[in-house]
């Protein structure tokens, strides 16, 4: 564990708490893509099958359980509790376009051709692009509540911080994980546009609005 990864994980935790806070206080999941949230559940379930056979640490264990539980809980809130506040007509990204290619990529590029490893690779690829339906929705509406943008920013910061973590691990431990690194760089890259608007508008106290 190093500081970059710890801060990255904390940013990931923060993003989940911000999202829960947004849903609970506004009693609405307006502006949040159900599809993206559903993809995160799938990401966690496929990545953390190793919970059953590979012990890493108590930290790792607790975080995995938390990510699975919280993502399922968010899905429950969106699907049942605050269902009327979700507008499916805005959440129209076709996730088949993400699931299919990620699955094929996982079959081709994995570390071992076995179920757990293919699922792991699938989860890495899927996580990289899972934000697409959310960004697509943002693009369609052209604006977002500040709290929603804080959620997205924390999520972007989480993956961005994993990059210095990998560089640090390369120099201190001599290990590289090409699948995670490539997918992680792509994933972070997807946030660049968002970050630009976030830093130049939201953090200056303006409304998050995309140029027409």
């Amino acid at each position: 564990m190093n500081l970059f990864r710890l801060l990255g994980d904390l940013a990931h935790l923060a993003s989940i708490f911000i999202l829960l806070h947004k849903i609970q206080t506004t009693r609405s999941c307006r502006g949040i893509s159900f599809k993206t949230q559903a993809l995160y559940v799938l990401v966690f379930l496929t990545r953390y099958v190793d919970l059953f056979f590979h012990w890493v640490s108590l930290y790792n264990f607790v975080m995995k359980i938390f990510f699975i539980a919280s993502s399922c809980y968010i899905l429950y809130l969106m699907k049942y509790r605050f269902r009327p506040t979700h507008d499916p007509s805005l959440d129209t990204f076709k996730i088949e376009y993400l699931l299919g290619p990620c699955f094929v990529l996982a079959l081709i590029f994995n570390y071992h051709f076995e179920l757990a490893e293919v699922l792991w690779a699938f989860s890495i690829y899927l996580e990289a692009v899972a934000i697409f339906p959310q960004l697509f929705m943002l693009q369609r509406t052209g604006e977002a509540e500040a709290i929603t943008t804080h959620y997205l920013a924390a999520l972007g910061v989480y993956r961005a911080l994993y990059i210095p973590n990998w560089i640090y691990r390369y120099f201190t431990e001599g290990v590289v994980d090409p699948i995670a690194v490539v997918a992680g760089i792509v994933q972070t890259g997807l946030y660049l546009d968002f970050f630009y608007v976030y830093f130049t508008k939201v953090l200056q106290g303006q409304k998050f609005e995309l140029p027409a």
Binding site: N60, F67, Y111, H112, W120, E173, V175, A180
Partner: peptide, 10 residues
């Protein structure tokens, strides 16, 4: 085993 790093990250 080339994947020691893989499964200790979240």
């Amino acid at each position: 085993e080339g994947n020691a790093i893989l499964h200790d990250e979240l």
